[in-house]
Design a protein around this nucleic acid. Structure first.
Length: 954
RNA sequence: GCGAGAGUGGCGGAAUUGGCAGACGCGCUGGAUUUAGGAUCCAGUGGGCAACACCCAUGCGGGUUCAAAUCCCGCCUCUCGCACCA
């Protein structure tokens, strides 16, 4: 088989690596270590997608490269295998989720092996393995057993939680107090229950009050849930980003999500007793302030105040009303009888809306007046308290002071309800707003500026004002500096079968009702496996988890004479992926989640590659767990992923789209607008049009855009779309491998462009790199012979100077590119090498060997085959990476551009090390330059040795 | 609206950080070989031009500099994320 035949050599070498256990990693690294991790896939029924091999090829190249540089490399692979699709499949077909999952894993494993990745398959694991989720459950117990000590800034065992004196000896109170501090706690939280689908939906699956799939009504009902107190770690999760080698854009996504803000908590006096006009009395307010003056600012607000959080304490004098969220506990209390009906109706409506609906209706502010007033602590003025759903109960204190002059939302609200607008910040000269309009209260300005209408604070600039007033409020016991986060606690339970069961038992009383007392399943009795034989209903009629219908012998447990019911919620898919990188290090350990010695030797993950879709949640959750495990002494470092790279999405092939109406008449793409019914119309005629795929031949570029060749007045859209089944532009790796081979697929995915960029697929591009591999093959192999043998141009001779220079230039460039993960340019370098040596009649064997070694991380199958042909009897996986020789790079002469007034006019040949003087002389001696300089006045001569010469003349 | 990133030939993309714009690949054009080509080889290929002279050209408009894709200012467009977070 003298022709390059990937279908034969790829399986051959895959078998070789398997049988020789080439990539099995030792327990502990020997010498320098490198832990390279891929985000493990969810093994869907559709199989691998060309997006998967992109990141996997990149990490495989890095691993193979570093092995050749003598590093101990850890490179495992596994499966994020819990998830809803297998459960839905079970409901439809009756096939148990475990069966479906195993089939899908087998398919994924086959596809990954087909691509020749150098994973240590002995470490393979799935989050659904009972031996694995035993430790996921164990970590849950750690979370349950931990409270966050804000003073030390770390998680500590719950029995170290200091107890307030008054509860010390009361068992039930102690229990409650502890439960209130655990990192894992229970909460009644609303879920989206869809009776028609018989399932609980995630927020993003509910659109406009109905399910995304099928459009069935969804109701929000409260359900007991498990929560994880990730907010306790918000500060560390944000700060520690600084020490990580992640792209700024991912860090900023995380920072954004955590959403730290600094401001102040401020108490506004409210009172059940009011004067005739319905406002709190002056005297009682004065008494309150003097009380506060003595007692200071209380940690928890009492019933006599409405506490707000603000990032703009400098605008306190401009607060003309207050707003509390419809769910605020004071709503009822503050509502005056004549407002009761309006407030009730409003709150009821708000309760029915999902968070999403509330924000969708952002355009118009709604709200109702409660009839009550609060007193602004800085100026003693009584201001009305409203209820409005633009204030969220889940952020800050669920109540705000509204400063319409300097907050756009408050401004809109105040305009709608005709509430006074008082400017307290003079924006000065501003490009954003009209200063006079702002001062008159007709325009809103959120900019910093100078304080006005603010009593003794007038004249202060915003930043100083904030500091000063926060200190003053604190002194008078009216407020305090505060920090808030957008990050919410993590809703950690799902009403699904196919997830990790919680190791939690609920105590039952004699009547079989829960007493509210919990008991954990002891760590040494884990795992809690899922019940084996469970029937699945296509839908069930209650939002309770499916495990509620588990067989009784699973569901009920009797311990120490007490009866318990198992927790029937299951953990979310995130749970298993939160710590898999630790288990890979020690996957068979049945004594610990990971042996500390091994953990210390291999962690942290030196390179983590995956899609940007996990930029926020997965990475945040995993970092959170890692920090808890660190605080509790299970792992040595407090960040798991040192370097993170996100591969860009691979889009479908470029498409040209034109628009036609029902009669087949074209409409220019520039004229197309979205119609109300999701369709598209011609803006001018109003006729509906439909997108039509246009062949590339029918299109040409004209100026900035593409137009129809047949009618250049018709503009055509050109873009690549995300691959999707519905668009029919999905590329299947199996297809590419059978057409071109795995090496071509790998090479193409790396050659497309920078790893992190979003890029469109092109089958022609695959055939392009396939052609390159063919040329490499022909450069080394005698294609005309019947037997596999070396090309007769391969000779056992020293390279000549030019050949040697090309060789070492290539080594130098490829090595540098690999260090920077610039795979596309590394491949280009090897193409140049190949183009050069194909023209050489004598190809030194040593040079060919070095190319094969450099190519091996990219196209390992072909490289192994050629390496063998070049006379080696074992794998090249551990051959030393070629080193370049600086001396070989030297050129005798170089070409230097000569410019006149910055324009290229000639190129001269000079010695490589020519100094400025020589260079200048050579430039002036050039015929063309001399001619052009004739009769001109020299203003300046710029000479950069080895680079260029520029004459500035008049 | 806020945040991040990006705009370079027909297409994907290079450009050692201010120093010859367009490496490498695709596509296209011409030629060679071939029964044939979606195989292989050779040559060409940013635009204008008879021209290898010259002019224009890195989203647009200014600026700094001997010199700008690269630095500064102001716009425009696209992609992604967040979205009433007080």
């Amino acid at each position: 088989m003298p022709r390059y035949n990937p279908a034969a050599i790829e399986p051959k070498w895959q078998k070789y690596w398997d049988e020789n256990r080439t990539f099995v990693t030792p327990r502990l690294p020997q010498g320098k270590k490198m832990y390279v991790l891929d985000m493990f896939p969810y093994p869907s029924g559709d199989g691998l997608h060309v997006g998967h091999p992109e990141g996997y090829t990149a990490t495989d190249i890095v691993c193979r490269y570093h092995r050749m540089k003598g590093t101990s490399v850890m490179h495992p692979m596994g499966w994020d295998a819990f998830g809803l699709p297998a459960e839905q499949h079970a409901k439809k077909t009756g096939t148990a989720p475990r069966i479906t999952t195993e089939q899908n894993i087998a398919n994924f494993r086959r596809q990954l092996k087909m691509l020749g990745f150098s994973y240590d398959w002995d470490r393979e694991l799935a989050t659904t393995d009972v031996d694995y989720f035993r430790w996921t459950q164990f970590i849950f117990l750690v979370l349950y057993d931990t409270w966050f000590d804000p003073e030390q800034g770390r998680g500590r065992p719950i029995d170290e939680l200091p107890l307030p004196k008054q509860i010390e000896l009361k068992e039930d109170l102690v229990r409650e107090y502890r439960d209130d501090h655990r990192l894992a706690y229970q909460l009644e939280a609303p879920v989206n229950w869809c009776p028609a689908l018989g399932t609980v939906l995630a927020n993003e699956e509910v659109i406009g009050g109905v399910s995304e799939r099928g459009g069935h009504p969804v109701v929000r009902i409260p359900l007991r849930q498990w929560m994880l107190r990730i907010t306790a770690y918000a500060d560390r999760l944000e700060k520690d980003l600084d020490q990580l080698d992640w792209s700024e854009s991912i860090k900023s996504l995380q920072r954004n999500w955590i959403g730290r803000s600094e401001g102040a908590d401020v108490d506004f006096f409210i009172d059940d007793e009011t004067t005739d006009d319905g406002r709190p009395s002056r005297e009682r307010f004065t008494d309150w302030t003097s009380d506060r003056d003595e007692a200071g600012f209380p940690t928890k607000p009492g019933p006599d105040v409405l506490r707000v959080y603000t990032t703009r304490p400098d605008t306190l004098f401009g607060a003309t009303y207050m707003v509390i969220a419809p769910e605020h506990p004071f709503v009822r209390r503050l509502t005056q009888p004549d407002q009761a009906k309006a407030v009730d109706t409003y709150c009821e409506q708000a309760a029915r809306k999902s968070d999403l609906d509330r924000t969708d209706l952002a355009k118009n502010k709604t709200g109702v007046f409660t009839g009550s007033y609060a007193i602004n602590p800085v100026n003693g003025e009584a201001i009305p308290i409203w209820v409005a759903d633009y204030v969220l109960i889940s952020y800050g204190t669920g109540a705000i002071m509204a400063v319409p002059a300097h907050d756009t939302r408050d401004f809109e609200f105040a305009q709608t309800f005709d509430i006074p607008i008082v400017a307290v910040v003079d924006p000065g000269k501003s490009t954003e707003v009209d200063r006079n309009e702002v001062l008159a209260g007709r325009q809103c300005s959120v900019e910093d500026g100078t304080a006005i209408n603010s009593g003794i604070y007038d004249g202060l600039i915003t930043a100083d004002f904030k500091k000063t007033i926060t200190t003053d409020l604190h002194k008078r016991g009216l407020g305090r500096k505060a920090v808030n986060y957008k990050l919410r606690d993590w809703l950690f339970s799902r009403q699904h079968f196919w997830g990790e069961p919680f190791p939690i038992l609920h105590e039952l009383d004699a009547a079989g009702k829960p007493t509210g007392r919990l008991r954990t399943v002891p760590a040494d009795e884990l795992p809690v496996d899922l019940p084996k034989d469970m029937k699945f209903d296509a839908a069930h009629d209650s939002p309770e988890p499916p495990l509620d219908k588990a067989p009784e012998d699973w569901l009920y447990v009797t311990l120490d004479g007490k009866r318990y019911k198992r927790e029937t919620n299951s953990m979310p898919q995130w749970a298993g992926s939160c710590w898999y990188y630790l288990r890979f290090l020690d996957p068979k350990n049945d004594q610990a989640l990971v042996d500390p010695e091994i953990e210390k030797a291999w962690m942290p993950v030196d390179l983590y590659v995956g899609g940007a879709e996990h930029a926020v949640l997965h990475l945040l959750y995993a970092r959170f767990w890692h920090k808890v495990l660190h605080d509790r002494g299970y792992v040595s470092m407090d960040e798991p992923f040192q370097k993170l790279v996100n591969q860009g999405m691979i889009l479908g092939e470029m498409e040209f789209t034109g628009y036609q109406d029902a009669d087949g008449r074209w409409t220019s793409a520039a004229q197309v607008a979205n119609a109300a019914d999701n369709g598209q119309i011609d803006k001018r005629s109003g006729r509906p049009v439909v997108p039509v795929r246009v062949e590339p031949e029918a299109v040409e570029k004209q100026g900035e855009s593409f137009v129809l060749v047949a009618d250049p007045s018709i503009k055509i859209d050109s873009r690549a779309y995300k691959m999707s089944k519905s668009r029919g532009n999905v590329v299947n790796p199996d297809e590419v491998v059978s057409g071109f081979g795995a090496d071509s697929l790998r090479l193409y995915e790396m050659f497309m462009g920078p790893l992190e960029a979003v890029k469109p697929w092109s089958m022609d591009g695959v055939s392009g790199v396939h052609g390159f591999l063919n040329r490499v093959w022909r450069m080394i192999v005698d294609e005309r012979a019947d037997e596999l043998q070396l090309n007769e141009a391969i000779e056992d001779v020293e390279p000549d100077v030019d050949q040697n220079r090309m060789l070492h230039k290539t080594i130098h460039a490829v090595t540098q590119d690999l260090d920077q993960m610039a795979f596309n340019t590394a491949i280009a370098r090897m193409m140049e090498f190949t183009n050069f040596f194909l023209k050489q009649d004598a190809r030194p064997k040593s040079a060919m060997e070095k190319l094969v070694l450099m190519l091996s991380p990219f196209a390992p199958h072909m490289a192994e085959e050629l390496w063998q042909l070049l006379g080696h009897d074992k794998t090249l996986a551990f051959e030393p990476w070629p080193a370049h020789d600086e001396a070989a790079l030297r050129e005798d002469a170089i070409e230097v551009p000569v410019q006149i007034n910055g324009r290229l006019r000639a190129k001269i040949q000079v010695a490589t090390d020519a100094d400025a003087k020589t260079l200048l002389a050579a430039a002036k001696a050039n015929e063309r330059i001399a001619e052009l300089l004739e009769g001109k006045t020299m203003v300046k001569e710029i000479v950069v040795p080895g680079r260029m010469v520029n004459f500035v003349v008049k």
